[in-house]
Design a protein around this nucleic acid. Sequence first.
DNA 1: TATTGACCCTAACCTTACGTCATGGTTTAT
DNA 2: ATAAACCATGACGTAAGGTTAGGGTCAATA
Lengths: 270, 270
Amino acid sequence: MDKYKAIPEGYMTVGQLAKKMGITVRALHHYDKQGLLSPSGESEGGYRLYSDKDIVILHQILAMKHLGFSLEDIKTHLVSLDTPNDVAKALAEHAAAIRSKLESLTNTLVAVEVLKEEVMRMQSVDFKKYADIVAQLQMKHEHYWTIKHFDSDVLDGIRSKVAYSPDGFAGIFEPLRKLQLEAIDMHEAGIAPDSEKGQDLASRLWGEIQKITGGDAEMLAKFEESLTKMGEDEEGLATMDEAEKEKLMIASDYMHQVLVIYLAKNEGGN
Amino acid sequence: MDKYKAIPEGYMTVGQLAKKMGITVRALHHYDKQGLLSPSGESEGGYRLYSDKDIVILHQILAMKHLGFSLEDIKTHLVSLDTPNDVAKALAEHAAAIRSKLESLTNTLVAVEVLKEEVMRMQSVDFKKYADIVAQLQMKHEHYWTIKHFDSDVLDGIRSKVAYSPDGFAGIFEPLRKLQLEAIDMHEAGIAPDSEKGQDLASRLWGEIQKITGGDAEMLAKFEESLTKMGEDEEGLATMDEAEKEKLMIASDYMHQVLVIYLAKNEGGN
DNA sequence: TATTGACCCTAACCTTACGTCATGGTTTAT
DNA sequence: ATAAACCATGACGTAAGGTTAGGGTCAATA
């Protein structure tokens, strides 16, 4: 009655294990070759024989895969023999990652539906709108104080970039945000804007600005302007607490100083 | 002041377009070679020159890509010259797909958090639990009346499969659900269970059952039993309306008849 | 015991959407 | 004219297996 039974004691072949776990034989072969799961037994003819111990490991592999880990990451985790606390920490981190994915997927959903409405209402298709919608949804996040006071022309000009870049908004503005934080640190450390470190910051900052504006002259000018007038806008600042506001102003001020010197020195070059 | 300007009238080179849209030059090359977007101009030296018309197309490409379409699908849509209504329909379909992804991602999130709690509480790691949690979340859906009355041992035995199969629950039970619908149709058409068509259904049904149970004898028996006693369970049926209940019973009955004959004929074989 | 059918082995090429060189030509500023 | 910055084509690489191909192995049957 039972086709699979006479195979060695307590062992399963690839096919049996695959069926049981809902994966393919090829996947098991792959995991073996990649060193993720080598069966603990072998038949005389060279068949892979998996034991219960192997199944436990396979469960871990599949669970982590379901969580979005790459096989390579899974492998290192398997070797690292982590304690329950480590596991809990990793799970918590992953939960956060999933949450942000959920958020961006939700944005996408909204964008699709808004676009659909547009298409039906206007009886015409304009996919450029899609980028605008996606970008605007992403820019709404209060979290990104980085750009609160940018000229709206600048923001308009980069919508496509924000929408289509692999990591969306963050992918574009995260580097800039880091530079802002650096600027604050340097200000607090009393590093002079015309010092080597200050000018190094300026150089990287200018590079980022170029990247973001795409070298477009008009946008470049407006972008610069936006940087220097950060903090003047009362309305936008209303939602921030004092500490944050303070930081923003310091960063803005320091970046401005540093840039002015940098650009004066490198007028023609670069 | 503007580095890029002396290039032909109203044309951009790859690099300029790439910067503007936040993608890479390589991607544009790729789209060209795949026949998705060939620039409408060319310089004497063989440079690709993109016009505004090309940008419109690129917007469509990038938007659809963001929505999760493959380049190949995008290509067919681009040539199909769809009307606004077609576009709206496609968008609606995609919205549904996104919703189901959202749902499964939400499940994943819950599973991760529950598992984390478990790990912290028990101070031990058991990844098998993960599959159980994920599977149970998926099985909660009322929608799947297919399996409402299955023996709980059967359900226990396939949790890993449900959790890890690429399309989750649906990936495993969708074929079975289709067979149920077929059974109803055949019953209504008055096709005899021992006719050729009836036995064809039986054969496919048996195949599915084998796939789901993985050929395990014990589970196979229970699965069969579950099929035949569908509809007896009052509690589970309470949430269905009459029409659905009726259908379920018809399907269950017809499938049973068909299977009994099939198994009697193919006792030893197969 | 020999055969059969279901299963297993390894090897090797295929897939997506580009990233990343390598090599060499083009444009434009100086 | 020459360099800097851009562009072209070509070819190989990636992740996680899918998919043949060619050929052994296992367990049951004749």
